[in-house]
Design a protein around this nucleic acid. Structure first.
Length: 156
DNA sequence: GCCAACGTTGGC
DNA sequence: GCCAACGTTGGC
């Protein structure tokens, strides 16, 4: 099963917010590569929930895809900052999925700690300048991240 | 708040 | 199709 990493700014919407609301439309993604990842997601796929622009930055929990890609509602909303007037009505440009919370990490697995995991050495997340907000995570990376905070991927 | 890295836009 | 200008992301 593929895994993913979703970035979010906790000041806007953090993992505790996902736990509070129970499910969340992952809309507002306006980058083609990230959108293509959203479209590749399947129901049940597990996602690492990453806090960016935070203190500390890092993985705060696990989410699961509950609804697969469908048109992002905000692209047609003129009042939204994510409005895209160029998106064709019949072939919407932007997609969103829905995610639900699975498990909070017992502590945030910081970016620094991730850099220290050999399994994560090749991840784009570690590479300087990668701004992708939705990115694939290998099974090895996923398991290593969970193990680093004492969670077992097989008992979620 | 700074700024490097990167994606997008638009003139030509 | 090139590429400079611009806007955004995100770590620090």
């Amino acid at each position: 099963m593929p895994h993913w990493l979703l970035k979010s700014e906790p000041d806007v919407f953090g993992y505790p917010d996902l736990q509070r609301v129970g499910r969340e439309p992952w809309n507002g993604v306006r980058n083609y590569q990230a959108r293509n990842h959203l479209r590749a997601m399947r129901v049940g796929d597990l996602c690492l929930f990453y806090h960016s622009n935070a203190k500390p930055t890092g993985i705060a929990g696990i989410a699961r895809v509950s609804v697969e890609a469908h048109p992002d509602n905000l692209q047609f909303d003129p009042a939204s900052p994510y409005h895209d007037p160029k998106s064709p009505l019949d072939t919407p440009r932007w997609s969103m999925v829905e995610v639900v919370p699975v498990r909070a990490f017992p502590r945030v697995l910081t970016l620094d700690a991730l850099r220290g995991l050999p399994e994560w050495a090749e991840s784009p997340l570690i590479r300087k300048g990668t701004r992708l907000s939705v990115l694939p995570v290998t099974d090895t990376e996923f398991r290593a991240a969970l193990a680093a905070v004492g969670l077992d991927a097989d008992t979620l």
